[in-house]
């Protein structure tokens, strides 16, 4: 058996470089929350079933709970803390407020990162397709209608950077 060593990795999170020393079995979610104190990203199930931990890695939406941080050495990560432009909220964030797209707010960071990733993918055209491609984010409060309304508004407004 080889020794279980820590690994030195660099993560670029929301345009800041972090050099960290980690053990191989630590999830990206735990690194974000416990090491970098970016607690916007939520832990719902920790097993890939709810989408609360969704972040963007090199522009793609993924689940940080099923990702080992050590595998993302050198990647650029965007979390909910990094989607706004300074004091200017991201259009999806604004739309979520306008459409009452949350109640407790626990699923919201994951929903917003997932929606940004989805619009970037450009595969959903209709409302049904948006629903289908957002199905990886569960909302226990049942704010889904508001969530889809918010996303549709931004999508139809054509503003999705």
């Amino acid at each position: 058996m080889e020794p279980k060593e820590t690994h030195a990795i660099t993560l670029n999170v929301n345009d800041t470089n972090y050099q960290i020393q980690i053990l191989p079995w630590v999830s990206l979610l735990d690194v974000l929350r416990e090491e970098l104190h970016l607690t916007g990203t939520k832990k719902g199930c920790d097993h890939g079933q709810c989408g609360a931990c969704t972040v963007l890695v090199d522009g793609k939406r993924i689940l940080s709970c099923l990702t080992l941080a050590v595998m993302k050495d050198g990647s650029a990560i965007t979390t909910i803390e990094g989607v706004a432009d300074g004091e200017n909220l991201h259009p999806i964030q604004k739309a979520f407020i306008e459409h009452d797209a949350f109640q407790c707010g626990y699923c919201t960071p994951g929903q917003i990162c997932s929606a940004i990733g989805m619009l970037k993918e450009g595969k959903a055209q209709t409302r049904e397709e948006v629903q289908e491609l957002m199905s990886g984010n569960l909302c226990r409060c049942g704010a889904n209608r508001g969530i889809i309304n918010a996303i549709m508004e931004v999508k139809e407004g054509g503003c999705h950077e």
Binding site: G51, I62, L66, S114, G117, E121, L133, G136
Partner: peptide
């Protein structure tokens, strides 16, 4: 199968 996030991974 699965969800968009999982299919990306």
């Amino acid at each position: 199968g699965a969800s968009a996030q999982i299919r990306n991974m």
